[in-house]
Amino acid sequence: MKISAHLQNTHNHHHITLTTNDTTHTIEIPPKSTGYGSSANGGELLFLALATCYCNDIYREADRRGIAVTAVEVTVDGDFGAPSEPAYNITYRAKVTGRAGAAELEALARHTDTVAEIQNTLRGGTPVTMGEIEVESNG
């Protein structure tokens, strides 16, 4: 699966395009009140990625086990220190509702934690590298 996120930002314009394989869609996040940048910060979006991954994976893993999950709630909390410092104390909690016994739903929830790709990416310390930089002077 090939995933790409593209962001374009100019004064009062913040456009996001997400692509997985050949499927592209957009999400709306308004610019900051100053008109430049995103009103959502990277930490919030990182935590949203963790919550979204776990939510989607619960449904995927439930389907594999033949469990009908009817609702998922995920809350991710953590801390950031000074600028340039990585996050710490990242924890998440989930509520999974479905048509199965409590022990079966708990086993599903615990198993999903072990296969959630975003969680495993962070836990594994995957390197992030910067590629080509293009600059354009207009002044």
Rank of each mutant, 00 (worst) to 15 (best):
T70F: 10
L46P: 00
G42R: 03
I67K: 02
R110Q: 15
Q119D: 10
T26E: 13
K95I: 12
A109L: 12
G131E: 05
T23P: 04
A102M: 06
G78C: 05
D57R: 01
N138S: 14
T20F: 08
G98K: 02
T75M: 06
P127Y: 07
Q119P: 04
V76S: 08
V128P: 09
F80M: 12
I118V: 15
S39T: 02
G66Q: 07
P83I: 08
E117I: 14
S137L: 14
V115M: 03
P86I: 03
V72N: 00
G81M: 08
E61K: 02
L105V: 02
V74E: 04
A94K: 02
G139E: 12
T112H: 02
S4W: 01
V74H: 04
P31C: 13
R64Y: 00
N120L: 14
I27C: 06
H15T: 15
R65V: 01
F47S: 03
P127G: 04
S39Q: 06
G42L: 04
T70A: 10
K32E: 15
T91K: 12
D113T: 04
Y92L: 13
E132K: 14
A102C: 00
D63P: 00
V128D: 06
D79Y: 10
Y36N: 08
N9P: 01
V135Y: 11
T17R: 12
E44C: 11
Y88I: 00
L45H: 07
P86D: 04
L7D: 00
S137V: 13
V115Y: 06
S137M: 10
R60T: 08
G98N: 03
E73C: 01
G124F: 08
G42I: 05
G35P: 07
G81E: 01
H25Y: 15
I29L: 13
H14K: 04
A102W: 01
